[in-house]
Design a protein around this nucleic acid. Structure first.
Lengths: 139, 139
DNA sequence: CTAAAAAAGGATAAAACGATCCGAAAATCT
DNA sequence: AGATTTTCGGATCGTTTTATCCTTTTTTAG
């Protein structure tokens, strides 16, 4: 459903949010440790998230990452890393597919696509239900 | 959402079903022409579908492919080509994620996964609503 | 001011996926 | 039987995705 990069991005954002709720900023190594991801690859993803305006990055000792000071939805994270093809593109890969010129499964997948958009737009990264509780981020 | 191979597979199955309703079996070239896909790559996919018991293949002049003589669901096609990770695996890629040991988004994605399973299991490849109508299979 | 910490960025490697090539095997037709 | 049609199967190639390496830049701390 999501690329590996996007999986790492979501886990990262949730971890940074959890950490921030405790008043701490988060370094790359802390992230890769928390979510069990390859360090250099994760670094690139954090850069993308920072460039995309979802994270603030701070260099130097004591540096690290903070969530940007705005509402951040799961939708923003997915769109930044994977783009919005999951939400918008034809499931059969047809460029011309649309409501008026549909592929054979267009209608059948409307409820799925609606459900996906709905959930991604309804989920705030800072939402308590993501952060608290016994949630796992690795293994 | 689906791999390119799976997109080709779904289009192929629908095209073969349409053709079969007209009493014709379908050759590889006819498929690639109908769905605008690379021939050699599509051949491999048809082989997988045949090995998976979704298509009957016939060699030699006048040969080609027929749907297997059983009910075939969209779910069968997707499972044969992409496996069932879309239906079963954790969206964040965690092996240990489950209802009792969930990742942070486990609950949020339950309705999406249910919707996907529901649609894939409810859609029969021979269903009139897929085959008739002004549906496009290419471009 | 210097040294260390941490992110940024470029270059490269490995793996997965998508696609192609070509000869072999099977079935049909004359 | 021989030629033709069509699927089968192995080898290979190209692109994208995932992952690693190493140097540079920025910032902080002493």
């Amino acid at each position: 459903m999501f690329s590996k990069a996007c999986e790492y991005a979501i886990k990262t954002m949730i971890y940074v949010a959890t950490n921030e709720k405790k008043g701490r900023r988060t370094g790359l190594k802390e992230v890769t440790n928390a979510i069990d991801s390859p360090e250099a690859f994760t670094a690139k993803i954090l850069q993308q998230l920072a460039k995309g305006g979802l994270l603030e990055s701070h260099r130097g000792p004591g540096g690290g990452f903070l969530l940007a000071e705005r509402k951040i939805l799961l939708h923003d994270v997915v769109k930044t890393i994977d783009g919005d093809s999951l939400m918008n593109a034809c499931v059969l890969g047809l460029k011309e597919c649309s409501g008026s010129n549909p592929c054979p499964v267009h209608e059948d997948f409307l409820p799925i696509r609606n459900q996906i958009s709905e959930v991604l737009l309804a989920t705030d990264i800072r939402d308590e239900k993501l952060l608290s509780g016994n949630h796992i981020l690795k293994i």
